[in-house]
């Protein structure tokens, strides 16, 4: 058993080495497939980042009456934070609101002059972010019907409703489209790789037949092809890993501007284990499974 296993591994390595041209062509296709699958993984990270940063912009603001005490406001904030629908609550005091307003309009003298006529006319507010667009109506109805409703001057939900729904709708669509496109591309890539391995084995169909006719068992014939597939997959993974790391390292800072603050290199390094596993599963998996399936056809002698 052990002798046969050693022979199978030896034959697999020898065949990989002796038909180096064909092996390298297989590796080349596998590298493309691994590169594509890894890119899809990185794109998933990027799209999640972009979706999250777009969704950050979807929120509602509760403007609080001028006579509300800070203690009541913070109590309301705490109540809101406890709600399962609420992702984040930010309290903006009257002073902070004035500071922000002044900063935004400092170059508009008329507005600044008008502002000077009053003693801080702005309201303090609470900015609320929910997890889903559909959660906002229930949040608003809670605010309108609960005890702290006497603190609330206005909720800007009716004006923001359309924008919030659009942001969530579009990002959800992008997410789904991303999953579908990734799935289709992954299937195409795997089929291309499978076909390459199948063609490489097609060249050996006569040899497989001879081996069967002289009494070799299926595993003794199939084993070296599987080993060859695994070797091709492994080399492709190692090459792809370094190639992608190199591309990200040199290209990442240059395209950082387009990625809206997404640090590709940190994401890659943080997920290195997962990426390496995905690459191994893709490269070695395709090599081994394709070899297994492709040889099956010629072993029926």
């Amino acid at each position: 058993m052990l002798t046969s296993l050693k022979r199978i591994i030896y034959f697999g390595w020898k065949d990989f080495y002796s038909s180096l041209g064909l092996s390298l062509a297989t590796c080349f296709i596998l590298v493309i497939v691994i590169f594509l699958i890894t890119s899809l993984f990185l794109l998933k990270g990027l799209s999640e980042h972009l979706i999250a940063s777009v969704r950050e912009k979807a929120d509602i603001t509760i403007f609080l009456k001028g006579d509300s005490s800070e203690e009541d406001i913070l109590k309301l904030k705490e109540e809101l934070v406890k709600m399962p629908e609420v992702k984040e609550v930010e309290y903006v005091s009257k002073e902070q609101a004035l500071e922000k307003f002044t900063k935004e309009h400092k170059d508009e003298p008329e507005i600044m002059r008008a502002l000077g006529l009053f003693d801080n006319p702005l309201w303090s507010s609470l900015n609320i972010k929910a997890f889903e667009a559909a959660q906002y109506p229930s949040l608003v109805s809670f605010l309108e019907n609960s005890s702290p409703s006497n603190l609330i001057a206005e909720v800007d939900y009716p004006q923001r409703k359309l924008l919030i729904e659009q942001i969530f709708g579009i990002t959800e669509m992008v997410k789904r489209a991303g999953i579908i496109i990734s799935f289709i591309l992954a299937v195409i890539a795997i089929l291309v790789a499978f076909n390459t391995v199948r063609l490489a084995i097609y060249n050996s169909r006569e040899e497989i037949k001879i081996q069967r006719l002289v009494g070799a068992s299926n595993w003794f014939i199939r084993g070296p092809f599987i080993v060859q597939g695994a070797i091709a997959g492994f080399f492709s993974v190692v090459f792809s890993l370094f190639m992608i790391l190199g591309i990200i390292y040199f290209l990442g800072p240059k395209i950082g501007f387009f990625l809206s603050g997404f640090n590709l290199l940190s994401y890659f390094l943080a997920n290195l284990g997962t990426i390496a596993l995905i690459q191994l599963a893709t490269g070695v998996g395709i090599g081994v499974i394709s070899s297994y399936i492709a040889t099956r056809k010629y072993l029926d002698v």
């Binding site: 058993m1 002798t3 046969s4 022979r7 081996q211 002289v214 009494g215 070799a216 068992s217 003794f220």
Partner: peptide
């Protein structure tokens, strides 16, 4: 190869 296939010793 035939002997290898039948598991003969080296």
């Amino acid at each position: 190869y035939i002997l290898e296939a039948v598991g003969a010793e080296e």
